[in-house]
Design a protein around this nucleic acid. Sequence first.
DNA 1: TTCGTTGTTTATAATTATTCTAAAGAAGAT
DNA 2: ATCTTCTTTAGAATAATTATAAACAACGAA
Lengths: 136, 136
Amino acid sequence: MTSKQEFIKKLRNSSLRPTKQRINICEVLFNRDKTFHFTINDLFNLIKDKTGEKVSLATVYNTVHAFHKKGYLKEIPINSNQTYFDTNVTDHHHFYDVKEEKLIDLKNEDVGPIEIQKSIPGKKIKSVEVLVKLED
Amino acid sequence: MTSKQEFIKKLRNSSLRPTKQRINICEVLFNRDKTFHFTINDLFNLIKDKTGEKVSLATVYNTVHAFHKKGYLKEIPINSNQTYFDTNVTDHHHFYDVKEEKLIDLKNEDVGPIEIQKSIPGKKIKSVEVLVKLED
DNA sequence: TTCGTTGTTTATAATTATTCTAAAGAAGAT
DNA sequence: ATCTTCTTTAGAATAATTATAAACAACGAA
């Protein structure tokens, strides 16, 4: 499933050549069972840890942005000093534990259908994101 | 309604002494009919324009943060380079026009009730925010 | 009032996430 | 192989936000 061939396909679909560095990024991003919430910095550090190889920060930014643009990553709307991304690109939402700065998945069923009863002429809905902030 | 006395009350409630600068900030923030979406930089510029007096950027940051903490301002969860705030602190949501970088209010009725069917032990819900991104 | 304390303003420096740059290197096509 | 095009990288540039510390203003008690 999450083999090198898969990574290469994702990269090519994103108009990126499959380089060693990008494959390493994919390894950390997509070779996992569960959804993965991360910041660029998290990812940057994990690459070193998990693959033993260093990838420059600029490459991490570029690759993540290309994946995001292509829809392989989802940006999570939180006001934080850092931008959070999610490898789960299916329709779902999040809890955000403000104190611990941690994200928790909310299945779509946990929130129920959201019907937007208003529309703006000439515009269509791109995404609907629910963020539930948690406190103690 | 939005008189100087009101501003002073808001400031005192936020543990801030009512200074000329802070009153000016209040003037721009709260002396209006409609909801007001802004970034710190927007506000900073409007103060100069509307009151003719300059307030330092640091004071704007401090005051906005105090009001936010006290609940007189709401932070709007968008991933943007700048943080957006809202003077409407009632329960409501937003459209975000990604291309034009503009926020539009969504009344609570426009979205319908959102019932969160999941809970995290020891945590309670602080807020539920819906962000609807718009594209052309 | 006046004085002393405490809080505030301000310009500026520091910090930090993100983007840009340009030179050296790698991938792909012929 | 070779040439072109894309990529990587370190480091610089940018920009939002936060911290600093000196001059100043609000407050309350005498």
